[in-house]
């Protein structure tokens, strides 16, 4: 099942925290508190363990060139767009299109593939006295942090150089939110099926659904109920799709709401102000937390 590889971080020797005797802190802990550990110490130990795991996941992903390519790609695209359109607002608007398409796609597929590839490592970890939740969350955190790092370097630096405004901050936050939500969705889709191909297929399907199908359905529903006041309903439906949510929040900052007539006025009322951004952040947090908790539940009950 597991072939020893001197370069791999997956070697047991490289996890002193995991081996039962090797960890000095564990030994001291045991010495001071005899057999019963207080809740606080257990918690601290868990946190330490999680950080340790996170470190290995993160190092492993950063060794993967994909993340670096992603950062480079974002950097080239955003610098290019800002140089072509002299107006920073226009640059942000066109960058939004790219971000809405690329960030979810890359996050979900990369995370799914990575999860399947490190399946053996996860199995190994599961054989250790580590909670399943900790394993999954450290995987999630490692994936998110590495993707966010490349997002911040690839997108954040050009935004800081060309358009250091409130709008670009919102755009960056939206991109971060999308990354986190789609990594979370990726873990869910990876845990729904054992088969790697089916898992990746499911994550592509999810991306396709949120990017294209959902908007088409939304348009269909709008047409079907065009005789009714649909403003509140559409607003709720927008919140039910993280990509739409990110798009609308950024567009509201870009003053495009004036085009939208009554709907736009209402959207502006709800989403244009800072409370609106907070509300959107809250919904986005739900999009991050919910799939992850479901995935954690699945992982806990899973027969590996």
């Amino acid at each position: 099942m597991f072939t020893p590889n001197t370069n791999s971080p997956h070697r047991i020797e490289s996890f002193p925290a995991l081996s039962l005797q090797g960890d000095e802190e564990n030994i001291t802990l045991r010495k001071t508190t005899s057999t019963r550990m207080s809740a606080k110490e257990t918690k601290a130990g868990k946190k330490y363990l999680m950080l340790r795991l996170l470190k290995y996941v993160l190092l492993d992903i950063l060794k993967n060139r994909m993340v670096i390519f992603y950062a480079l790609f974002l950097f080239v695209i955003s610098t290019g767009l800002f140089s072509i359109s002299g107006d920073p607002t226009k640059g942000i608007a066109s960058l939004l299109n790219v971000i809405l398409l690329v960030t979810p796609l890359l996050s979900i597929i990369f995370a799914t593939i990575y999860f399947y590839n490190s399946y053996e490592f996860i199995e190994l970890l599961s054989s250790q006295p580590i909670q399943r939740k900790t394993i999954l969350y450290s995987q999630y955190a490692g994936l998110t942090i590495s993707l966010l790092l490349s997002l911040l370097t690839g997108l954040g630096i050009p935004l800081l150089i060309f358009a250091p405004t409130y709008e670009s901050l919102i755009l960056l936050l939206a991109a971060c939110g999308l990354t986190m939500a789609f990594v979370s969705l990726a873990l869910l889709s990876a845990l729904l099926t054992r088969d790697k191909a089916r898992g990746i297929g499911l994550s592509i399907l999810l991306w396709f659904y949120f990017t294209i199908l959902y908007d088409a359905f939304l348009l269909m529903i709008m047409f079907a109920f065009m005789d009714y006041p649909m403003e509140t309903v559409t607003l709720v439906m927008v919140a039910l799709n993280p990509i739409d949510l990110a798009r609308v929040v950024v567009l509201m900052q870009l003053d495009i709401s004036a085009l939208m007539g009554y709907t736009g006025a209402m959207m502006q009322e709800i989403l244009g102000k800072s409370q609106g951004v907070f509300a959107a952040t809250f919904v986005m947090m739900l999009w991050i937390i919910l799939p992850l908790t479901i995935a954690a539940g699945k992982f806990k009950r899973r027969d590996l």
Partner: peptide
């Protein structure tokens, strides 16, 4: 025909 559909502006589907 449907002014509220402007909500979908810059969506990939619209493109």
């Amino acid at each position: 025909q449907l002014p509220p559909s402007l909500l979908l502006i810059r969506s990939f589907m619209v493109y």
